[in-house]
């Protein structure tokens, strides 16, 4: 098998992998932004119960949710050029990255549309009626009343989807994209320090995911400030709790200590 474990490689690879993070984040950002657009377009026929389009969006949903993303990548990368050839469009010179972003956007779009549908449905109908009664148009009611609340409701799900998307990008290297995982494969094969490479890879994925999670939690707290009972403002941090317990136990700091001295 590989070489014996060497801690230096771990740090070294961490530094070498970080530049490829750019590619990974590019794929995530593009596919989530495009996916949101697709998700909204797909969710609308379901929300407004438009007859034919509704069926079509259901077919789209069940395809992208029912097949593995790896298969979807292959299908788009190898299949789409063949189909386009029939209508005399040559895409053989288009870089693989575009296919990857397209696939991830369509894949995320399916999940995002379900998220949008659920969130919009969760804003109670009475508020929309109140908006109409105040004299707002349908568009004003949607953008001013429904959308801000739906955004806040959907944030936990959105956070999950972005993190899932981030981790899914590790499959893009199967089409030769040099993102985090792709780069780590090369490094590992060249040096035969497999464990070190994958540990540093895991650390990077973890740090990014954790950072995103915290970031989304912060935004959620800000958006849900009108719901005191769901996101509480004064949650003592774990460190503060731990410190309090320590001070309470140790003699000389807490009240107990003074009593001992007296």
């Amino acid at each position: 098998m590989g070489e014996p474990f060497d801690f230096h490689y771990l740090l070294d690879y961490l530094v070498k992998l970080v530049p490829t993070l750019q590619m990974t984040l590019l794929i995530v950002a593009c596919s989530i932004v495009i996916g949101l657009g697709i998700g909204l377009v797909v969710a609308l026929p379901q929300l407004y119960k438009i007859p034919v389009l509704r069926r079509l969006s259901q077919v789209y949903l069940s395809f992208f949710r029912g097949t593995p993303i790896l298969i979807q990548l292959f299908l788009f990368y190898y299949g789409l050029p063949e189909i386009l050839k029939l209508v005399y469009v040559d895409v053989s010179k288009v870089p693989a990255l575009y296919f990857v972003i397209l696939t991830y956007a369509l894949h995320s779009g399916a999940y995002l549309s379900e998220m949008i549908r659920a969130a919009v449905g969760a804003v109670d109908r009475g508020q929309v009626e109140a908006a109409y009664a105040v004299g707002m148009t349908g568009f004003q009611a949607f953008t001013r009343i429904v959308l801000p609340q739906a955004t806040a409701i959907s944030l936990p799900v959105f956070s999950n989807l972005v993190i899932a998307n981030l981790k899914d990008t590790s499959l893009a290297f199967s089409l030769g994209i040099m993102e985090l995982t792709g780069k780590s494969q090369t490094l590992a094969v060249m040096s035969r320090h497999f464990v070190e490479t994958y540990i540093s890879l895991a650390i990077i994925y973890f740090v990014i995911s954790y950072g995103l999670e915290k970031l989304f939690h912060l935004v959620e707290r800000k958006l849900l400030r009108h719901e005191r009972q769901i996101v509480s403002d004064e949650k003592p941090s774990r460190y503060r709790k731990w410190k309090q317990r320590r001070f309470a136990l140790s003699p000389g700091f807490g009240r107990g200590g003074q009593e001992n001295e007296a």
Partner: peptide, 22 residues
């Protein structure tokens, strides 16, 4: 319909206040 709604106002049984606004 839009004009009609501007000439009337409604107070609801379930209040229906905009929950994200003060």
């Amino acid at each position: 319909i839009h004009t009609l709604r501007q000439k009337t106002a409604m107070v609801f049984q379930q209040y229906n206040l905009f929950k994200h606004k003060t």
